Amino acid sequence: MRRADRLFDIIQTLRGRAKPITAAALAERLEVTARTIYRDIATLQARRVPIEGAPGLGYVLRKGFDLPPLMFTMEEVEAISIGAHLVHRIRDPKLQDAAESVLSKLQHAIPAELCAQLQAPRFLVSEGDTVRPEGIALLDVRNAIRACRKIRITYRDEQDRRTQRTIWPIATVYYVDVTLIAAWCELRGDFRHFRAERIVRSTLLEATFAADSRQIMAEWMAKRAMPS
């Protein structure tokens, strides 16, 4: 989590509480150390956020403090809201949680008249038909892409044939009703697209591929752009 996001989350947590909350409790909630929370609290206080309290006693946010409203248009709020609801179609639990968090933060940061549009939107987003992957966690895939780590998978094709692959994941491709993992396949010696729901099992390996994956990404993009 970026520090700016963490500072925002600390303020949001304090705003929602009438009683003091300890640094230890904040640290557990935000998955950091208590020492980090102490530093963040000091930073917020230096920026004139009216946080009161002390180590061991807990912290509270003085009543009356509010963040300045973000300047969004109605269309921008609707775009964010629709996008967050569309995330539910891809069956990625962590991204779904993140989308809900975005909407929650937005409700606390925009003017009341725009907030009403978030709470009672005048649109519907269908659930979609994407199958939830059982053999691989999409969070692991995203982490592997960031860290350039290889993944070993057992893959089942459309004829139900199974193969063992070691892949270098470079991108997650979300379509309306299917999620693909774009990767370099060591078995085939070429780029391949793997349907997430056809991965029977997977293991995130310690082994890494190119330290800078941008070149691999560029080669994959170039190959996608080539006429068939």
Rank of each mutant, 00 (worst) to 15 (best):
M1A: 13
L7N: 01
I11L: 10
Q12D: 12
Q12T: 10
T13C: 08
A18V: 12
A27S: 08
V32L: 04
T33F: 10
T36P: 03
D40Q: 08
R47T: 02
R48G: 00
A54V: 01
P55F: 12
Y59H: 04
Y59L: 05
D66Y: 14
P69K: 09
L70Q: 14
M74R: 13
E75P: 02
E75D: 14
E78V: 08
G83N: 06
H88D: 12
H88F: 15
R89K: 14
A98W: 08
A98D: 05
K105A: 14
Q107W: 01
H108W: 09
I110R: 12
L114Q: 08
Q117L: 15
R122E: 09
F123Y: 15
E127A: 10
D129E: 15
T130W: 00
V131Q: 10
R132L: 10
A137P: 01
A137E: 12
L138V: 00
D140M: 07
N143F: 03
I145V: 14
R146T: 11
C148L: 02
I151V: 11
I153L: 03
Y155L: 09
Y155K: 07
R156S: 11
R161L: 11
R162A: 04
R162G: 01
T163V: 13
T163F: 08
T163W: 04
Q164G: 04
W168S: 14
I170R: 04
A171F: 11
T172A: 12
Y174F: 14
Y174G: 01
V176E: 14
D177A: 04
D177Q: 08
C185T: 01
E186I: 06
E186G: 05
D190L: 03
D190H: 08
R198H: 15
L205R: 11
A207D: 11
T208D: 03
F209P: 03
D212Q: 08
I216A: 15
M217A: 15
E219P: 03
A222G: 15
K223Y: 06
A225I: 03
S228W: 06
S228P: 13
S228N: 05
